[in-house]
Amino acid sequence: MNHMKKWKAIEVTEIAFLSIAMAAILILLSGADPLTAGRMFFNGIFGNASGFGEVFVKATPLILTGLGCSVAFRTGFFNIGAEGQFYIGALASAWVALNATGVPGVFRIILAIGCGFLFGGLWALIAAILKAKLGISEIICTIMLNYISMNLLGIAVRTFLMDPAGSIPQSEKIDASVTLLRFLKPTRVHTGIFIALGAVFFVWFLMEKTTSGYEFKAVGFNKRAAACSGISVVKNIILSAVLSGGLAGIAGAVEVLGVQKKLLEGISGGCGYTAILITLLAFNHPGGVLLVSVLFAALEVGANSMQRQMGVPSAIVDFLIGFIVLLILGRELLTGKMRAKEGK
């Protein structure tokens, strides 16, 4: 056991070293000096309050979508559709926030977020039924649904949700009484972070302390064994997919009500895809998702600062995080423990 831990420490050091080296190479490629860029990077994160706050603003939707992915992955449902579920959740909550004018402030927020959860979950349900009942690949289905939902949102902001006063494809501004409170001015940190933290606890409790969580994991671990011990595979895949989509839907709702305060195209910023990598890095653990999301958000804030100050494309973050995930996947290559299962 001790031996294993030692190996892991070496791996972690190697992966960290290689990632930093890769970052330096990429910064050099963009024609900037890595040391100055590094200073700009940390300056962007810790230089002032609003930059530091931005880390938590960006982490909030990542935590929620990442949790969603982790629940589905552990049940063996490879939900690549968080992006689409995010869109549908954002669409539903924006519609409620703008149209349910009869419901007073706080209750409308709750209703809007609830609808985000509901519709995100229903969107995932489509793929879940196709997978659980008909055996169709959830990977292809969820990707197709992502593109469909992207276009649905595009239609919405050009037709029934379009701001009548403007000509840009986006909804009108949501009334201030229905938006999430920014409690740390001048930063943009909003109460959505508490929803995300609550969700971390909820998912951890569900997966580790309840029978449903146990059944999810059992199905994810071995479908046949789960079925033989009386656990319904179909039911659990559908439940976990709906929960997963619902969490991504909440992320969409929180982004609409807390950050953008209106519905617009590309509102997710690709966070549904990033969430997949975050979940993989966190080994599907809720606490890990929280940690990796905050780290990733910090990377993003720092990279934005590098882009503003030094012209290093902020896509460097997507490059690096993918690189790290692949390093972790291929870590046996680093330590020479290839095909570890051989001869077992």
Partner: peptide, 10 residues
Amino acid sequence: IAINIFILGV
């Protein structure tokens, strides 16, 4: 999936 997202970034 990891490769797809990685290549998108690259």
